[in-house]
Design a protein around this nucleic acid. Structure first.
Length: 339
DNA sequence: ATTCCACCGGAATAGCGGGATA
DNA sequence: TATCCCGCTATTCCGGTGGAAT
């Protein structure tokens, strides 16, 4: 059934840019000065989840590293490392200059000095940059000689709103490349290419791929996740073709697996709060706090719980509506079951 | 219209864990 | 070993907001 599982994994970088030629060409052109020893202007990539921003940035950067071998590229996920120095530390760690540094005892300035001291060109990819809680890191990167910054975010307007003026003015002149959501047909084409490389022949039909494309709503990560899940089910049952019910079953599980990582990155009491909200459904703030505090011997303050709820909302695990006294918190519909 | 109340979220601050330094 | 410095989280304090009660 599955001949090469790696092509179905989410970190997989394809060797062609199907349906993303325009964006790949634009990004390559923006980074082209590096092949002549110059430092390019910053680049801003926008577009919805699963539109290929991260994947094709890796794709272009891989090509770049072949044609400009002294260039070092580093990818930082600002969702996972959302503080100013946390993200910077991650970058230095990937560049392997952090060996003598420590995450909790090195000042931001010193980290910046280490970044500036690298004598080779650096391409710093700040993925999900809107998740940074302090955008001054972006300014610091702009101001560091030899660093090319690639910013990746969903919504340009939202990002600009959070910037301070120094960054905003530079960002407005940055090269801006927008990735549209894929159409169902485009997703089917992408899946077909992966199927050709990773599954046995005739494992799945064109209409079935379109069905997955429809279900994924423009998100290639979701589409691949559904395909992977369906293929694993078929393989588990010793079949060489994927049935329609394999796909139907895989759709909710595939959607869920794209989100599931978020729960692991929460601490225990925050997971507890989420579980409580899942159990009660839509809840008003006061009641939610009372119930949560009742389960703990050493309850946190209301302010702390508000911060946790913000964090859960940030992770798309919780939604809220209304302001002040009319606010209610709701667990999102297809959130993963608590572990 | 005014007052009251619960709540939001920014800012300042304290405490903690951990590495560096003397 | 004692002390300092750092990032990070939780806490304290508080001005602001909007619906409900008077």
């Amino acid at each position: 059934m599955i001949t090469d599982a790696s092509v179905l994994q989410k970190g997989f970088v394809p060797d062609d840019s199907i349906h993303r030629n325009r964006e790949v060409t634009a990004l390559s052109r923006s980074l082209d000065p590096l092949t002549r020893g110059h430092i390019p202007d910053p680049v801003l990539l926008t577009g919805p989840s699963g539109a290929g921003k991260t994947t094709f940035t890796r794709f272009v950067v891989n090509q770049l590293e072949a044609s400009a071998p002294e260039t070092q590229a580093v990818h930082v996920n600002c969702w996972e490392s959302h503080t100013r120095s946390g993200a910077l530390f991650d970058a230095l760690e990937s560049l392997q200059v952090a060996t003598a540094l420590h995450r909790n005892s090195t000042s931001h300035d010193e980290l910046l000095n280490h970044l500036a001291a690298i004598d080779k060109p650096v391409v710093l990819i700040l993925d999900e940059v809107d998740q940074l809680d302090d955008t001054s890191l972006i300014y610091d990167c702009y101001a560091t000689a030899g660093v090319t910054t690639i910013l990746i975010t969903n919504d340009r307007g939202e990002l600009l709103r959070e910037m301070d003026d120094r960054v905003r003015s530079r960002l407005q002149t940055a090269d801006h490349i927008h990735f549209d959501a894929y159409t169902s047909q485009q997703l089917a084409d992408i899946l077909q290419a992966r199927v050709d490389h990773g599954l046995v022949a005739d494992a799945i039909s064109e209409p079935q791929l379109l069905e997955i494309g429809d279900a994924a709503a423009g998100d290639a990560r979701v589409a691949l996740s559904i395909l992977r899940t369906a293929a694993q089910t078929a393989a588990y049952n010793d079949r060489t073709t994927i049935t329609t019910s394999d796909i139907t079953d895989a759709i909710p599980r595939g959607k869920q697996s794209v989100r599931v990582r978020t729960l692991d990155s929460l601490r225990e009491p925050q997971q507890e709060l989420f579980r409580l909200l899942q159990a009660t459904g839509e809840t008003a703030p006061g009641e939610l706090y009372e119930e949560f505090a009742a389960t703990r011997s050493d309850p946190p303050t209301k302010r702390t719980v508000r911060s946790w709820l913000q964090k859960l909302a940030h992770y798309n695990l919780v939604e809220y509506s209304g302001e002040g006294p009319t606010r209610t918190y709701t667990p999102v519909r297809d959130a993963p079951q608590a572990v």
